[in-house]
């Protein structure tokens, strides 16, 4: 489900003033890539929109969303763009206030996935030998055990009360792909001239890893992080949709669950907007992230540049 991208390594920068110019050129390049295809700009706008939604969304509405007993499952109107739910609450408000939980989990998962995966991949690729073999066996195992059934069974023991806890579990289950990609990248980079030069100069290992290796891999670590966000959003919305977790807070998965299993959205058209609104939110978020990853791929992978 999660896809791992492996683009080419990027140019190394050295020296104070050249670094500044390179940085300026870099941002100019970013701007050019974004401008050439408007769809990529749309990706940035969509993701920013969701970020704002997660940050200030819950502040826009009162703590307890107003209910309207006279307008249960009312059809979309100007007042309620996506209709109302089974209690007469505005569906759009539910989507906006539910975004924080979903996105926070996604962010926590992405940070843990990428931190663990990068650390393990770097270590295995740099040390090689016995450590490498052992860590890659572990990675294979992590990749081979299917995540969703395990998550379901874990939910019987652990109720994942906060988004951070949920992110922790999802991250611990999902680092395999990143680890393998980072390892293969490390294996190929450590044979390159600039790493050999650094080693020849007798620079400490921390410098080689932190200053030489990591910056070369930063772009695709960032891309994998974005992709990990979508994976985490799917997984946790799915868990809440299945109804195996207690409903702590309003979020998109809870909405899907209530729409399908309480509202009968699959048999009565009235509850359909209530079902479609969170689905639409997921699709839009995916689209935004896919567009950004596509743009990043072109910025950092010179082979794809069409200049």
């Amino acid at each position: 489900m999660t896809v791992t991208v492996i683009p080419e390594a990027t140019v190394q920068t050295t020296g104070g003033t050249t670094r500044a110019t390179l940085r300026r050129n870099f941002w100019r390049g970013v701007w050019r890539v974004l401008r050439r295809k408007p769809s990529r700009m749309a990706g940035v706008v969509i993701v920013l929109l969701f970020a704002v939604m997660g940050l200030i969304g819950p502040l826009l509405y009162p703590d307890h969303l107003p209910r309207d007993d006279n307008a249960l499952y009312s059809p979309p109107s100007l007042q309620h763009p996506f209709g109302t739910d089974f209690e007469g609450t505005d569906v759009l408000a539910l989507v906006v206030t539910g975004a924080r939980y979903v996105l926070l989990t996604g962010l926590a998962t992405a940070v843990i996935t990428v931190a663990l995966g990068t650390a393990i991949g770097l270590f295995a690729g740099f040390r090689r030998g016995r450590w490498d073999t052992a860590l890659m066996r572990l990675t294979d195992m992590n990749l081979a055990i299917p995540g969703l059934p395990l998550l379901l069974v874990l939910s019987a023991v652990w109720k994942f009360e906060s988004p951070i806890e949920m992110g922790l579990v999802l991250g611990l289950l999902g680092w395999g792909g990143v680890a393998r990609a980072v390892r293969s990248q490390t294996l190929s980079l450590r044979e390159r001239g600039f790493i050999e030069a650094a080693r020849g100069l007798g620079l400490p290992t921390t410098h080689i890893i932190g200053r030489e290796l990591l910056p070369s891999m930063a772009p695709y670590i960032a891309m994998n992080m974005l992709i990990a966000v979508t994976g985490a959003v799917y997984a946790q919305v799915g868990l809440f949709f299945l109804g195996v977790l207690p409903f702590e807070a309003n979020n998109w998965g809870v909405m899907l669950n209530l729409a399908v299993f309480n509202g009968g959205a699959l048999t009565t058209p009235a509850a359909l907007p209530y079902l479609l609104a969170p689905l639409l939110a997921i699709l839009l978020l995916t689209l935004g992230i896919v567009l950004i990853v596509d743009a990043m791929d072109e910025i950092f992978n010179p082979r794809l540049r069409e200049e």
Binding site: L256, T268, P269, L272, I282
Partner: peptide, 23 residues
């Protein structure tokens, strides 16, 4: 391909049900 590859399976399932059993 990219779209269907990126979308979670329950979104596909729910959309298909919404279209072919409700609408």
């Amino acid at each position: 391909g990219s779209l269907l590859h990126g979308v979670p399976v329950y979104v596909i399932g729910l959309l298909l049900t919404a279209i072919f059993t409700t609408l």
